[in-house]
Design a protein around this nucleic acid. Sequence first.
DNA 1: GGAACATAGATTGGCGCCAAAATTATGCTC
DNA 2: GAGCATAATTTTGGCGCCAATCTATGTTCC
Lengths: 221, 221
Amino acid sequence: MSELAATELSAPDIAARIEHDINIGILSPGAWLKQVDLERRYGCTRLDVRQALDALVGKRLVRHVPNRGYHVSEFDAQRINEIYEIRAILEVATAESIVANVTDESLERLRERAAVFEHATNYGMLAEQNAANQAFHRELLLLCPNRELADLILEMRQRIPIAVQGRWSSGARMRKSISDHYRIIDAIAARDVAQLKLLIADHILNNRPDAARPREHAKAG
Amino acid sequence: MSELAATELSAPDIAARIEHDINIGILSPGAWLKQVDLERRYGCTRLDVRQALDALVGKRLVRHVPNRGYHVSEFDAQRINEIYEIRAILEVATAESIVANVTDESLERLRERAAVFEHATNYGMLAEQNAANQAFHRELLLLCPNRELADLILEMRQRIPIAVQGRWSSGARMRKSISDHYRIIDAIAARDVAQLKLLIADHILNNRPDAARPREHAKAG
DNA sequence: GGAACATAGATTGGCGCCAAAATTATGCTC
DNA sequence: GAGCATAATTTTGGCGCCAATCTATGTTCC
């Protein structure tokens, strides 16, 4: 996909496309993003490319070197770990309001999303798996009334490409993620906030790539 | 200040200047940011202005309306409250590592910053008060080894202009902020993590503008 | 007298061109 | 044959112009 776009796209669309391609590994960390290439690749003007790249610099997914151009950011183990810690802090903090605002309908939708994710891990490619996982967590965040917090969490989740995280690289990882989702749903259905917090923290921190696990340095924030 | 810059400034500098002017209220929420004005005001080119404005759109401080231009964001009570909640979540989470990494020298620097802030509340204008307060919290965050988290906190602290928050609008507010700082330092010196967490949460949530206090809706994240 | 319309002015926004810088390729010397 | 200086190509980045759009003012008609 993403070879020569049919319709004309504007800058924010291009940014989303590039972000997606970085996310699933079509564009690898360190790769230089030549403006002419992107221009042709996404079938848009030079200005759109520049604005999109600047936006991605703001999201820390892309770095800019004066007179050299833009390249996909590198993600060392420490940075990955730090972002996982932030995600754990933020997502655990949504537990109370999720339990407070849950309805039977939203539980049903969550089960549906979890099932779709399970199916994607069996029959889909990385892109579908990612989309399904994202849909589940997005549904979860609909129960969080603090929209700024929900948006921030979604932004943090996009801050490291899935391809770099290698989240569902093994079958064991996949199975854990699947069952995590169902157990999270169960805890919500039981209105068990404490358990939900534990499950969310575990779901995030124990799905880190091994390389990003902390060693001795001071834990948490 | 900021009337007709002497030296040529580049886009990131302009963004910082505009951000500062929004922060201390020179540019008020809702105000339209005409490109020609900014061009002359900061003595830079049109392109710099656009890039700076786009960057500020990314930080949610400025909004863009197609074919109408850029204007300073409005900040309603709900949004302010949501961001205060996020700040409380994140800054409380730094308590462990602050206590784990504190040294006598850093404690001394914190006391110095707190004293400077106290002085600024007595003899300085809003800009100096803000700078001194920021310096204190920046020093605090130097003790947090998670740089991503520290940066995120600093970014969240800038997400609502000081002028909108009216943080030190009354003498009582000022005195509370000053004593909060010293009590935070004492808790750190005593290595009392639990107390430090309480103080940080209180320092953030009880310095909210009254209008932004939540009523009945589900609390926390 | 008020409202709707038309015209003039101002502002934004996109496109293309060109210069500066860097990378790659070439040729020359040792 | 290897290393270095030089030339050519590629790529970035900035500036200016002009079209499209919106705002404001003035005019006409009901």
